[in-house]
Design a protein around this nucleic acid. Structure first.
Lengths: 124, 124
DNA sequence: GCTTGACAAGAAGATATCTTCCTATAAGGT
DNA sequence: ACCTTATAGGAAGATATCTTCTTGTCAAGC
C-alpha cells in the first residue's frame, strides 16, 4: 500500500483515537491489543473487522513511529488474574498531536459544512 | 462415566506412559500439556484425537490423585523463548506404580496367550 | 434387568501475542 | 499514462492454559 510519509491510515487513526480516549477517560491511561480489538469490533458493530494480526502489526508500526509506547504488564498482575501477560500501550504526546492533526485534516472545511447545511444536506 | 475407584482411564494411562517415558528418556523429567497433546496426536496418527480441554482436565485429575505433580515454568525461560508460560508436570512414584499396575492388569495372562498362539490366533 | 446419576469426552471459546504467507493497492518513478 | 514495488490487509496458525456447556456412557443401586 505504500504510504505517503507522515500520514495516518484509518486503522492507525482508530487506534490513536481509542488511546486518547482511555487517556482522557480516567481509570488507566493504558490499553492492550486484545481489549482494543474488542473495542473496535464493538464500535464497528461487526464481528472483528480487523484481524488480530493486522492490529498487532499496526500497533508495532505506531510504536516504531514513536506515537505509542509500550511495556509488559507485571507478572503478578497477570497471574493474579489468571491470564496471559498483556502488553500495555500508551499514547505519546507525538501520538496525540498526530491524531489531532489527522482529525482536523479529514474534517471538511467549515464553509463546506455550512453550505451543505444551507441546502438541507447534513454532513456525514 | 463413573469410574471404578483405583482404575485408570485410557487417556490417563497414556499420559502416565508418556510421563514415565520422558522420566526415563533422559533430558528433562518434566513435560507440559501442549507438548503432551502433540505427542499423543502423533502417536495416535490422527489429528488431535483428544481435545485440549479433555487433556487438561485429565492432567488435573491425575494431579489431584497424586500421580503427577506440577510447577509453573520460570518466567525468564518462557520469556526468553517468547511464548506463554508452561505448566510442567512430573510423574510421582505413585504414578509410576499406577501405570505399571495398569499395564500388567490389562495384559492377557501368559497362559491365555500361549493357548491362543497354539490355535493360530494372535493376541491383539 | 432397568433406571439413575456421577462423571468423562469433546466442542467451543476466552485469554493474549505474534509470525508467516499471500494478495491487493496506492505512491512514486519513468 | 503506465509500470514497478513497497507495504498494508487479512487469513491462518503457532503457542499455552483453562472454563463452560452439552452429550454420552458406565457403574451401582434397586
Amino acid at each position: 500500500m505504500r504510504r505517503k510519509p507522515g500520514q495516518l491510515l484509518d486503522l492507525e487513526a482508530q487506534i490513536l483515537a481509542v488511546a486518547v480516549d482511555v487517556l482522557v477517560g480516567g481509570d488507566s491511561p493504558e490499553f492492550h491489543g486484545f481489549g482494543l480489538a474488542k473495542r473496535i469490533a464493538d464500535r464497528e458493530g461487526s464481528q472483528r473487522l480487523t484481524s488480530h494480526g493486522t492490529l498487532y502489526k499496526a500497533l508495532g508500526r505506531l510504536e516504531d513511529a514513536g506515537l505509542l509506547s509500550s511495556r509488559w504488564e507485571d507478572h503478578e498482575v497477570a497471574e493474579a488474574a489468571g491470564r496471559p501477560r498483556r502488553r500495555l500501550y500508551r499514547v505519546s504526546s507525538a501520538g496525540q498531536a498526530a491524531i489531532a492533526l489527522h482529525v482536523s485534516a479529514s474534517q471538511p472545511a467549515l464553509d463546506d459544512r455550512t453550505a451543505a447545511f444551507g441546502q438541507g444536506i447534513e454532513p456525514a
